[in-house]
Nucleic acid binder design. Structure first.
Length: 752
DNA sequence: GCCGGGCTAATTTTT
DNA sequence: TTAGCCCGGC
């Protein structure tokens, strides 16, 4: 038997070997969090405390769950399959497929990704003739999602606001629309699962007794529904082992609630919180910067990272006049790093928002330095792939109107908007899907629509006999998608992508361990009677066995593949053999580490971002984001800011980020001596082409200065026009935006 | 049905 | 600046 516990530090060891009770592990950046999580699972199984089927491990991303599976396979000789490891969404998908009848869903329900959801919402609004900017599709979508993430149905929401009233009504109609089309959105996967567990006692008790230990990764990212879900499924015999880092909570904007950690500690009666504070990633200066910075946050559970590695290099801070210069500086530093023998792929350039990559890319491109920008389009989100998937969805479920509208006239079949409007009216009138409405159409568009109808119909019958990869192949052919792109100027890449889809299907089947030739079969697996009888301890072998089947066994391979495609957007950029510089937002850097990290654009308004500066919570999240950025670096850390930056088509004057004041002086190495900073600053301003040279002294105000106005509050001078008596300042006020004020009239105060 | 001009708004992102 | 959206003209 492998000694899986060797080389664990005392804190890690105590976390790994905790008794099977609810526990909270505060795992700092680079403290071996994943290791603890996987080793604990292995330890529980190896010591015979739990059967592998009693374990549920939940992550947020597919990447994280894959990583966990890989590591476990390395540690354990047993079959990982019997364990439930996956993302919240993936696990809920599995549960809903197994219990689709209880959930009131068709066996082959399809999953809307957020774009699909948006078009579904748009279609709903259109069908109701709502063209009011107060009810924009995007707002409605986020309203619906945030309701679902709170566990609220339209009927549950208090009607006390006229604005709400309409949204609630629309939310209800949206759910009806989804139901009749046989589709569900991401949030619905979770909510629906939660609801069937609440409403179906035998089902609930079955899973409650089955999962005795539930391990949750990145607990700080859970939203309220996920928390409720965990609480429900773990009550009775279950316990939750939560691992997270409140200091790395950077997803509040999409519903994550850090407060869940404190609530968890209280409600799950956690006796002792274990902190993993030993960092195995970064050198001392980097770590103390992170510690000092994050100490400025008030709402923390408390944690301080330390390392055995020495202090290492100082953090290099660079101040530039403008963003172009910042780009050049990155190029120069990169070149010198290359000379030191550092691989480009070990260097990351981080920024707060995607728009900032442009200037940097330009500089790198001109210098001939290879780079790779993360966050591009993912494989399954590419237009051509979405088209192919839509055909596949229609074959599996022709009533999916979102898929229908996506491809009914793509490639062109001469089916225009007029025809579709009529079709939609017929469908609405008879309360049927667009597909079913086709035979009821009249006029010449009927002919065209019939062609499409036949196409789908033939696809359906073919799908019954062919193995998955061949279904995909035949769809590419019969849809004429390939033919269409052959006629396009830049279609080669798209054709390549489409052909990749066949490989993706083959690969998917292989991973699901299934013979490619198995025909689609659907066996009802869940027998409520059995479950009731086993509510005490051991689950019947039959049910355990069913629970561990690959998805392709409980639904058609095509259906399984489609859900995989929706839930796994596909690492758009994963295989990248080239040695290239890594460019990404700070958000997407979370969980990664690099030898060298550049944090760029450290300016007030950018990082921390303007929109977050007003409330405390927003500011603290920005600080955590900065903390995440810093802790990505192993050996070398660079930070830069620029006095001027092109933003929204305008040159903006920025002040360096407040975060610099929150870092330890001793760990920083300014590229200009600190004493010269402010002298330098005013020189730069007076040399600036936007300011007449001598205005600084004559007027007594300078660009970039923080000011306070009685009515408008705080702001920054972004430009000064005219001189002496005519002098006016363009001031960017935090709350009121840009105003032009006469400096001789306006009562401005300096803010220090 | 398609193209182009004008307008507007402008973080962060996984499933 | 630029991407996305809407509208009008062909």
């Amino acid at each position: 038997m492998k000694n899986i516990l060797h080389n664990l530090n005392p804190e890690q060891l105590s976390a790994v070997t905790l008794p099977v009770k609810s526990a909270l592990i505060l795992a700092g950046a680079g403290s071996g969090k994943t290791r603890v999580l996987t080793t604990r699972i292995a330890w529980l199984i190896q010591t015979g405390q739990l059967h592998s089927s009693a374990i549920l491990a939940v992550t947020f991303t597919n990447k994280a769950s894959k990583e966990m599976i890989t590591r476990l396979e390395d540690m354990l000789p047993v079959n990982i399959r019997s364990m439930w490891i996956g993302t919240f969404h993936g696990l809920c998908n599995r549960l809903l497929r197994s219990h689709h009848i209880d959930a009131g869903l068709a066996a082959n329900f399809q999953i809307l990704d957020s774009n699909d959801q948006l078009s579904a919402v748009k279609r709903l609004l259109k069908s109701l003739n709502i063209d009011d900017e107060n009810y924009s599709p995007r707002d409605l979508r986020s309203f619906i999602n945030s309701c679902k993430e709170q566990g609220l149905r339209a009927a549950d929401i208090n009607v006390n606001h006229s604005y709400n009233q309409k949204f609630i009504e629309l939310y209800k109609l949206y759910d009806q629309q989804c139901k009749s089309e046989g589709v569900i959105d991401f949030a619905e996967l979770l909510l629906r699962t939660y609801e069937i567990l609440v409403h179906n006692q035998s089902l609930r008790e079955y899973y409650q007794s089955r999962f005795q230990h539930i391990l949750v990764d990145e607990f700080q990212d859970t939203n309220n529904l996920q928390y409720k879900w965990l609480k429900l499924i773990s009550s009775c015999s279950g316990t939750v082992f939560a691992v997270g880092d409140d200091d790395q909570s950077i997803y509040a904007f999409r519903g994550a609630n850090v407060g869940n950690m404190k609530t968890f500690e209280r409600e799950f009666l956690v006796e002792k919180v274990i902190k993993l504070e030993k960092n195995y990633r970064s050198y001392g200066h980097i770590l103390s910067s992170a510690n000092t910075l994050i100490a400025n946050n008030t709402k923390r559970l408390g944690k301080n990272l330390h390392t055995d590695a020495g202090l290492g290099e100082l953090i290099k801070v660079y101040e530039s006049t403008n963003d172009l210069q910042e780009g050049k500086w990155i190029v120069e530093e990169t070149k010198s790093l290359i000379r030191k023998g550092i691989n480009l792929s070990e260097i990351a350039i981080l920024y707060r928002s995607n728009a900032q990559s442009r200037v940097i890319e330009h500089a790198l491109f001109s210098a001939g330095i290879m780079y790779h920008v993360y966050g591009g389009q993912r494989y399954f989100e590419r237009a051509e792939i979405k088209h192919a998937i839509a055909y596949l969805q229609l074959i599996e479920n022709p009533h999916n109107n979102t898929a229908f509208l996506r491809v009914v006239n793509f490639p062109k079949r001469g089916i225009g908007i007029r025809a579709l409007e009529r079709l939609q009216n017929i469908a609405k009138e008879h309360n049927i899907s667009l597909y079913s409405a086709i035979p009821k159409m009249t006029g010449k568009s009927l002919t065209m629509l019939r062609v499409f109808f036949k196409l789908i119909e033939e696809g359906c019958s073919k799908a019954k006999h062919l193995p998955l990869p061949e279904i995909v192949m035949s769809v590419l052919d019969m849809s004429s998608l390939i033919k269409y792109y052959q006629g396009e100027k830049e279609g080669t890449d798209r054709i390549e992508n489409l052909e990749q889809l066949v490989n993706a299907a083959t690969l998917f089947l292989a991973e699901e361990n299934l013979e490619a030739s198995t025909p689609a079969t659907l066996i009802p697996k869940y027998q409520p009677k059995n479950v009731i009888s086993l509510s005490n301890s051991k689950a019947s072998p039959q049910i355990v066995e069913n629970d561990s089947l690959p998805l392709t066994e409980i639904m058609s391979p095509l259906s399984a593949f489609l859900s995989y495609a929706s839930l796994e957007s596909g690492n758009g950029q994963e295989i990248n053999g080239k040695d290239a510089l890594q460019l990404m937002t700070v958000h997407s850097a979370k969980g990664l580490e690099f030898d060298t990290v550049f944090i760029t654009g450290l300016e007030e308004g950018l990082f921390p971002h303007e929109n977050s500066k007003n409330e405390d919570a927003g500011m603290e999240e920005e600080r955590r984001l900065m903390y995440v950025a810093i802790t990505r670096a192993k050996v070398r850390l660079y930070m830069s800011f620029s006095q001027n930056r092109m933003l929204h088509g305008q040159v903006r004057h920025n002040v360096r980020s407040r975060f610099f004041n929150e870092l330890p002086e001793d760990s920083l190495e300014w590229s200009l001596p600190k004493s010269q900073q402010y002298t330098q600053l005013s020189n730069e301003f007076s040399n600036n082409k936007y300011v007449p040279k001598n205005t600084v002294h004559k007027i007594g105000w300078y660009i970039g200065e923080n000011v306070f106005h009685l009515k408008f509050g705080e702001g920054v001078i972004i430009n000064i026009e005219g001189t002496s008596i005519n002098a006016r300042a363009r001031i960017n006020f935090v709350k009121y935006g840009v105003k032009l004020l006469d400096l001789n009239v306006a009562k401005l105060e300096k803010v220090h």
